[in-house]
């Protein structure tokens, strides 16, 4: 009986050990999200403006406090990639946002998630539960998000209105990878053909 039990148990263990894994590389976790206002007529417009610095959103901004910005050269590289995509879609950049048909706001933020793995052993031995004995053995990862928002205002709008959002999310690897970021920005515009203007 004991032999049978060990046999069946070993099968279950073997099955579990060959359970499929997921992503192997950071870039395999990159995703690109876009959304737009389908009643907005992009084709009838032609100019846009964009700040020359990308904002880092780190929390609630106190009154009078200046925001943080993405450092160079990453800032310029990302802005250049956005502008080349907008130009390819027929848009002309203007310096004054008051004169532009649309304003593109670029922003980034990061988020770190921590797993407390000792929480998962309460079922095994309640004495170990909640003491924090495993506290030093935490693992964490940091995700980065880059968002581009096209905003319209004017006489037809009570408040500025968001008409397009492009968001890039991925796992940060610790070093800036220009290829990953450029590919993701390109993809955001590629999957937004409705942005094309005349």
């Amino acid at each position: 009986m004991k032999k049978k039990f060990i046999f069946y148990l070993s099968i279950i263990v073997l099955m579990g050990s060959c359970y499929p894994n997921g992503a192997d590389y950071y870039e395999e976790l990159d995703i690109v999200y876009t959304d737009y206002d389908d009643e907005f007529d992009f084709a009838s417009l032609g100019t846009y403006s964009i700040p020359d610095q990308i904002v880092k959103i780190t929390g609630e901004l106190l009154e009078g406090e200046d925001p943080e910005f993405v450092k160079e050269p990453q800032n310029s590289q990302m802005l250049a990639k956005i502008e080349s995509n907008m130009t390819a879609l027929g848009w002309t950049k203007t310096e004054d946002p008051a004169e532009a048909d649309l304003v593109l706001f670029p922003a980034v933020w990061t988020n770190t998630t921590i797993y407390y793995w000792y929480d998962y052993w309460c079922w095994y031995y309640p004495y170990y539960c909640g003491w924090g004995w495993g506290y030093p053995s935490v693992s964490s990862y940091t995700t980065g998000t880059f968002v581009m928002t096209l905003v319209v205002d004017g006489d037809n709008y009570i408040d500025p209105a968001r008409v397009w959002t492009g968001a890039v999310n991925g796992l940060l690897s610790g070093s800036y990878n220009v290829t990953r970021v450029n590919n993701a920005i390109d993809q955001a515009f590629k999957q937004s053909p409705y942005l094309k203007t005349n």
Binding site: P20, A23, V32, Y33, D35, Q191
Partner: peptide, 28 residues
Amino acid sequence: GWNVFYEKKDYDTYSVGTESLSGIQYRY
């Protein structure tokens, strides 16, 4: 019984309404 199905899909774009999401899907 126990059967485990798995497939890693190629990078692709999935759209619903006005929203689109691109990436690699791991399906289990």
